[in-house]
Design a protein around this nucleic acid. Structure first.
Lengths: 240, 240
DNA sequence: GCTTTAATAGTCAGTACGACTATAAAGAGG
DNA sequence: CCTCTTTATAGTCGTACTGACTATTAAAGC
């Protein structure tokens, strides 16, 4: 709104909130998809989402959708972040729909459930997720890019982990999202050297159950950004 | 759009594109503001922007607005980037308006101009820019945060510079946006050590005119991200 | 010419990093 | 119960990067 704000008439738009809900299952990145029950794209898979209601912000609508689609009772602690808005005039064949896309990160994926509607919802490995309805392939790819980038300079990786986790689990998050293997001792050293990234759980609590030496437990730290950042190994045309 | 997409009726929204147009003038960060000519917030300053038209994406509308508001004939090479979308139900007292906010960076600020409408447009120092109409204070602050953060790990700073620039000018960008002084030899060393950030202009071209030793000229490089990044000195609770 | 100003070169010690090697503590299988 | 396998954790070493400096160069302004 500015000068032109008052100049042109405005056309009504429909506004939706779409979600790229990501999680780790069996060491692979998965995304929550729903099967569309109606035209257009009937029978195709799509990102969950829905219309923003008159009394809601897009964020509120996204959190409501997240609760509905995952079937989780408490969705308040989950990481939900606005990704970007997609507004190409022809992105929905029916009418003018602008969608505000969000990225949500889940620690434990709830089992596939019926969903709140007739359409079924399902966890799908990220690599086999396309092609999706509308421009959802692009939204999903953007979400993946964003998450991968934010792992470098924020503590976002802990959003994929339960409240208490081992450094091995944290490393798995990086390896899975980036698709690269990391050296374990070096990863450990960098994480512990970064102030505010993780903090040790006071009692000498240790997670056992698996094989090998039990690992120490950590909690997410309070730092918003990582200093120094945890850069991925040679992302693009990096020298050496 | 997903399951709930077809479940609820949708309410019509108005969609606008608002712009935080930033530039450097006299070593200070400035933002382009317009004075509102009508209610609500008549007489208040606001970010330029306007309704997205039926055949436009938000990006297209933003670029159109940018051309209109700055009066620049060629706005195609300028940096324009989606910031985020603001959709609180009560953010506009008249009706339900969702705005897609953009950040634009200008090298040479064009002089204040009449603007395309009755309202006047003006460059205002960032520090004295508030309070603005609607939620524009928040949008502007978010834009500043985003630009400051992106200076660290992208070559965005060159968007504030003319096609050919000196390292001194580039350093000014960092110092102005971050509000901190940087050591000149160290800045120079880091910039030149970062592959793809800047490239020297072939001919031993040098910019003179000011005082002191003439500086070598550089052009923006091709790297999308900076490796290693150019971190700001002690941004928050950084150890040491 | 001498001073001022800004660009550029170089130094040095502390830190971070990648690539390894080594040790410790658990479970699995005989 | 002993050994192998698995995973966590500790430590080493040489290179690269960083921040804090000092030094030199080349122009403009008295």
């Amino acid at each position: 709104m500015g000068t032109a704000y008052d100049k042109y008439a405005h056309e009504p738009f429909a506004v939706t909130a779409d979600l790229a809900v990501l999680t780790l299952r069996d060491g692979a990145l998965h995304v929550l998809l729903v099967e569309r029950g109606q035209e257009p794209y009937k029978g195709h898979w799509a990102l969950p989402g829905g219309f923003v209601q008159p009394d809601e912000s897009a964020e509120t609508a996204a959190r409501r959708e997240l609760a509905e689609e995952t079937g989780l009772s408490d969705v308040s602690g989950l990481h939900l972040e606005q990704l970007r808005t997609y507004s190409e005039p022809d992105r929905d064949p029916r009418m003018r729909v602008v969608t505000v896309a969000f990225t949500a990160l889940l620690p434990h994926p709830p089992e596939p459930h019926g969903g709140s509607d007739a359409a079924q919802a399902r966890w799908v490995p990220y690599d086999t997720a396309g092609p999706l309805a509308f421009d959802h392939d692009r939204i999903l790819a953007d979400a993946h890019d964003r998450v991968g980038a934010k792992l470098e300079y924020t503590g976002l990786a802990t959003a994929f982990c339960p409240p208490e986790f081992t450094l091995g689990e944290l490393q798995q998050v990086y390896e899975t999202v980036w698709g690269t293997a990391l050296d374990r001792p070096n990863f450990r050293r960098k994480v512990l050297a970064t102030a505010g990234f993780v903090e040790a759980v006071p009692g000498a609590a240790r997670l056992t159950g698996g094989r090998g030496k039990p690992a120490a437990l950590y909690r997410a730290g309070t730092a918003a950004t990582l200093h120094p950042p945890l850069l991925r190994p040679t992302p693009e045309g990096r020298p050496a």
